[in-house]
């Protein structure tokens, strides 16, 4: 009972604080691993997808938990179970397909090892480092505005229509150099200007303020790789960026 009380307190603290969430998850790794193993029917290692999924489900449990509705562990266990089942259902689609990384009979070599590999590993490595630098820089700018990527993810529109409205506003923002500069300098979003320019309701913009802020920041100077990543999609669809 006492144990349950402390969990509840920790869980509620972790809902709003990602660091505390990480700490709580770390403390419950054995529980998570055990639940994942129970579901998969074999010992689950850290290399397994099920393990990652179980951890994510545990985090979902932290966010979704309401103490009025029962014990936390039971809820977490249930979520882990259903997420792993979901995953397995999805995976059955790939049945009958050989995995590139499956070990074949002759030794430890996998199919991927034997296939011709024309990728530029060194180039990729360098590219990755450059990307990391950009992301780190963006993260710093965002944190000055009190925003993390997790916040942006939470703030991201889920409905297509809302997303379209946000994109419309962002397109207006990107064209307006002065506005972009202001955003970069102050870390604040001039909602009124944006709303007037794009015709999108201010309320909608307000609701997704952090997401729009992050996206506009990406379109300021210095984030070519990330922008390239986004533009790639836009080009495929034949539209304009963002």
């Amino acid at each position: 009972m006492k144990d349950e009380h402390t969990i509840i307190k920790d869980v509620y603290a972790a809902k709003t604080d990602t660091d505390r969430a990480d700490e709580l998850i770390r403390r419950y790794l054995p529980f998570i691993k055990a639940e994942a193993s129970r579901q998969t029917g074999r010992v689950c290692t850290e290399q397994d997808d099920e393990y990652s999924i179980a951890m994510m489900a545990f985090y979902e449990a932290i966010l979704g938990y309401e103490k009025e509705r029962g014990a936390f562990k039971g809820y977490a266990s249930m979520l882990i179970r259903s997420r792993i089942i979901d995953y397995h259902r999805k995976e059955t689609r790939h049945e009958g397909h050989a995995s590139l990384y499956e070990e074949r009979g002759d030794g430890d070599r996998t199919l991927a090892d034997e296939l011709c590999d024309d990728r530029d590993h060194i180039g990729e490595r360098l590219g990755l480092e450059a990307t990391q630098q950009e992301i780190e820089e963006l993260s710093k700018v965002l944190s000055r505005a009190g925003v993390t990527f997790s916040d942006v993810a939470d703030n991201c529109p889920r409905q297509e229509r809302t997303m379209a409205a946000c994109k419309k506003a962002m397109a207006c923002g990107v064209k307006d150099k002065a506005l972009l500069d202001e955003v970069e300098r102050t870390g604040r979003l001039p909602l009124k200007r944006l709303s007037l320019a794009s015709g999108v309701e201010r309320k909608t913009l307000e609701r997704h303020r952090r997401y729009i802020l992050a996206m506009l920041l990406i379109h300021t100077n210095g984030y070519e790789i990330i922008r390239g990543h986004l533009r790639h999609m836009a080009v495929e669809k034949g539209g304009t960026a963002v």
């Binding site: 951890m55 993390t148 997790s150 962002m170 986004l230």
Partner: peptide
Amino acid sequence: ETHLAYAVVLGQDGSVLKVA
């Protein structure tokens, strides 16, 4: 961004998601 239990990813369509 990566955390112990989840990662934040940016899709090519501009969506930002939390994933395993």
